[in-house]
Write a protein that binds this DNA or RNA. Structure first.
Lengths: 146, 146
DNA sequence: GTAACTGCAAAATATTTGCATCCTT
DNA sequence: AAGGATGCAAATATTTTGCAGTTAC
């Protein structure tokens, strides 16, 4: 690929990919770049749309899966059955995500935010239930839409 | 349909349907019955399986949607992109669910529980974010699998 | 050069829609 | 009888898989 175009932006994506032992390819760089430029989370469909019909749908599926496996992005389940993906703020180790922050879905603009500073609260569960991970998703109106 | 078969079980399902202004039909009664007999939540696929190939796939989709709309069941989003449905404990008014309880997904037996007694905690969100609804899903090992 | 990644085709799944028929009220 | 619910067929949409060609290292 053209080396000039990706000059600056490429630095960061390359480093992230390399750090995770992934080979540096066009599609991975571009998809990762989308996440870096993005405020909120991205759904599969958003990526296909934003990428301006650049690469195959299958590549997007595989790339997202790879990123999740490596702990570069994490998934955010929402009620409308459309999984969103967002960058993990701190690097997550492979196969082990530990972003214990809260997610916020704006019902007006439909942006999904990672509220990195809001830590998931402690929960008192009934005897016998041992949680490994707690997911909190708040739904409402974001600061730009109120 | 045969009046005898549904004698006892039918009482409760009939009442629930009637209370929500729904006509009482075979498939609605049977699907509702599945939820009443069930510990955890059910995914669309579970229902088709449990119902012993009784009714059309499309009917299941439509029935679940109707129940959600009426506030008879609520959805539980999970990370694996498969929405589960569970009975609303207290009746939810139409179009307005207010079960503020926590959900627990067992990673061993894959049962999804509604922990009706665990109330979703208060959250301190950044200025400007106004939540309407907060969803908490804990993942781990349930009391039967530990 | 080799292993890994991509794109294409196609299969497998999942979901939605239209319409004729049947059932509930 | 009338409106709503169901079942079937089919259209859409989504996700997965196999494989051959291409690319990164």
């Amino acid at each position: 690929m053209s080396k000039e175009i990706m000059s600056q932006a490429g630095q960061r994506t390359d480093a992230m990919l390399k750090r995770n032992g992934l080979s540096i390819t066009d599609s991975r760089k571009k998809i990762l770049q989308l996440f870096l430029e993005q405020t909120g989370a991205l759904a599969h469909g958003d990526i296909e749309r934003k990428a301006a019909e650049k690469f195959d749908r299958v590549t997007v599926y595989r790339t997202l899966q790879t990123f999740v496996d490596k702990g570069i992005i994490h998934t955010i389940p929402t009620a409308d059955n459309s999984i969103r993906y967002a960058l993990c703020k701190d690097e997550c180790s492979e196969g082990h995500h530990h972003d214990h922050h809260v997610h916020f879905v704006c019902t007006t603009c439909h942006i999904t935010y990672c509220l990195d500073d809001v830590v998931t609260p402690e929960l008192k569960l009934p005897k016998g239930y041992t949680p490994d991970h707690i997911e909190v998703v708040a739904e409402g109106t974001c600061k730009n839409c109120k």
